[in-house]
Simulated scan of single mutants.
Amino acid sequence: MNMNLEIRISLFLLVCGLSSTLAQTNITCESKTKTTCEECLTNTSCLWCISSKSCMTYPYSTILPSNSLCPLNDARWGQCTINFQTLIITLSVLGVIIIIAFFICLFSCCKCENCGNSIKENKMQRKAEKRTSAQEQRRADMMARHDEIRQKYGLSRGSAYAKFDNPA
């Protein structure tokens, strides 16, 4: 029970620490407005705008910063050398390439599966032929045994009335 209380206190302190960290980032981003891009982007929640030379908190609610806040071409986040416009274009091209590669792999696998089906069909056909030939061999062996038994007891394979034709 004591451990349960300790866990609750730890979680409470963690949540309070996170909320105070978020409150501090709001203050620190805006306080670095008249500094350099590198100093602003030391905090990952900050966004640097080249045109206004201002540091601001990244607008997470809108995913991308609005054009009125900072044009995409002038916005920097994470690194000062890459702008949002280039980043978005690059990521979208990579996404399309990954999707195309996925569909190419999917279609090639389906094609190979169809090729595999013809191989499987050939294999099944060979097995069926082996079974048929084995069955014919067993049938021939059985007929030979039956003929031996008929010969042993003097029964001919001809008509059932043949023994009445030849008086013994």
Rank of each mutant, 00 (worst) to 15 (best):
N2C: 09
N2Y: 13
N4A: 09
S10P: 02
L11I: 14
L13E: 08
T21S: 12
N26I: 07
T28C: 03
T28M: 07
T28K: 12
E30P: 00
K32I: 03
K32F: 13
T33V: 08
L41C: 04
C46Q: 06
I50R: 15
T57P: 09
P59R: 08
S61A: 12
I63H: 09
P65W: 00
S66E: 13
S66V: 06
S66F: 03
C80Q: 04
T81C: 01
Q85C: 01
I89F: 02
I97V: 08
F103S: 15
L106M: 05
F107D: 06
S108M: 12
C109N: 10
N114M: 09
C115W: 15
I119N: 05
E121H: 12
M124F: 13
M124V: 07
K127T: 07
E129L: 15
R131E: 14
A134E: 13
Q135D: 12
Q137T: 12
D141C: 01
A144Y: 02
R145I: 00
R145L: 03
H146K: 06
H146G: 00
H146P: 00
H146N: 05
D147V: 01
R150G: 01
R157D: 14
S159E: 12
A160S: 07
Y161E: 10
K163L: 12
K163M: 11
P167S: 09
